[in-house]
Simulated assay, not measured.
Amino acid sequence: MKKYIIISTLVLSFAFAKAQTTTILDTIYANDTKNVALFFPEPIRQGITGSDNFVFTYNREKEQYFGLLQAKPGKESNLLVVNRNGSIFSYIVRYKKQLSKLNYFISLSNSIGNEKPIKVDSILAESSEERVDNRTYYYQKFCSYLLNRNQRIGRIKKRNEGIVLSVENIVFDKEELYFVIQIENNSTLDYDLNFLKLSVETRQKGKKKSLQRLYQEPIFKHNMPSKITENETVRFVYVLPKFSLSNDRRAIFELHEKDGERNIELKISHSYINNPN
């Protein structure tokens, strides 16, 4: 029997959506001779600008509360920042030769929303439990099928001190990309996995070259290990929503060891992402 969630006011959600579309973004000015500092209420998890004549730098290794903005002469753009708690901040950024303000202290009230959906008592909707179960079942079956195949997309491999990370296959099915991944431990020490994450890296051109990374959240993981013992090889699958990359972008898998330094960054060209099996 289908379950239903009974809720109450559609007007509230409509008003909320309408308010979002009419939000006027504040403007932050920057130039190429000074650092403009932006201090946020929570540590920065992601930050990206819409044009390569603006550069926003922040600590990607250890989350901190501030980032630095610089700009070259050119058209205005935008800056999008996501805090650790999911709060989203968006600003118009412009070049200005003379700056009257170098520090911006941003409060939580300036957030335009949160990346996690907010539950609002406003909809009469069918429960999605059964649909989620069916989708999970399909992911499991298709991932198992891919692990039993010998198909490879190319030589995508990186090693560090006896640890070998490789992407054997990238497959497109329905609306998802499936990454078949292998980790080999050819060392004499067990490898405790801290995390393996996929990011999209934008290579910005110009005199002030910089790299910006945007984390891609997997929607399903199949046979994901927590430890790879010595001389062991494990294979598993990451499932992500389908995406494509322009020539100035590439995907990067970051493998980090727990309480160790045998870390690996495996770079994947946009051509592999755009032409999956």
Rank of each mutant, 00 (worst) to 15 (best):
K18W: 14
T49Y: 15
A125G: 07
Y139R: 02
Q46W: 14
L68T: 03
C143T: 11
V171Q: 11
Y191L: 09
N231W: 05
G206M: 13
G47P: 01
S187I: 10
Y104D: 11
Y95R: 08
S90K: 13
H222C: 01
K3T: 12
Q20N: 05
E115M: 02
L10R: 04
E161F: 15
K62W: 06
E161H: 12
G50N: 05
P225D: 02
R159Y: 03
Y137D: 08
N274G: 07
N223F: 06
V82N: 08
F54P: 08
F14L: 15
K96H: 04
E265I: 07
D133H: 09
E175P: 00
F39M: 08
N134S: 09
H270C: 06
S107F: 07
K141Y: 08
S13Q: 11
P43K: 05
E129A: 08
L38H: 06
R94W: 12
D121P: 15
L165C: 00
L80K: 15
T49K: 06
G86T: 01
K207N: 07
L198V: 10
G50L: 14
L189Y: 13
E254Y: 14
Y65I: 09
Y104F: 15
I228E: 00
L214Q: 11
V180E: 04
K116H: 01
Q182N: 11
I264Q: 04
A15L: 12
K227A: 07
N263Q: 03
A125W: 04
F16V: 00
K97D: 05
K174I: 04
I181H: 04
V36H: 13
R262G: 13
V180A: 09
V234P: 03
S127Q: 05
F172T: 02
R135P: 05
T27Y: 08
L124W: 08
P218F: 04
R94M: 10
A19M: 08
L99A: 01
S166C: 09
A15I: 01
I118F: 02
G113V: 01
Y4P: 00
S199G: 09
K209E: 12
S210Q: 11
L147K: 11
G74M: 11
Q140D: 00
P218H: 05
G50P: 11
R250A: 07
K96R: 11
S127H: 11
F16E: 00
K116P: 00
S271C: 06
L146M: 04
K227H: 08
L193D: 06
N185S: 05
F179S: 02
K101I: 09
F56A: 02
L177V: 06
R249V: 03
F179D: 08
N263M: 06
L266F: 09
Y139F: 15
N134L: 15
S271G: 05
R60N: 05
I88C: 08
T21E: 12
E61D: 12
S166R: 14
Y191F: 14
E184L: 11
F56P: 00
M1H: 13
N114E: 01
L108M: 02
R131P: 09
E265Y: 14
F220M: 14
D133E: 10
S226C: 03
K205H: 13
K119Q: 06
F89Y: 14
F89M: 09
T57E: 12
S13Y: 11
D52Q: 15
E126R: 13
A71W: 10
I219F: 07
D121G: 13
Y58I: 02
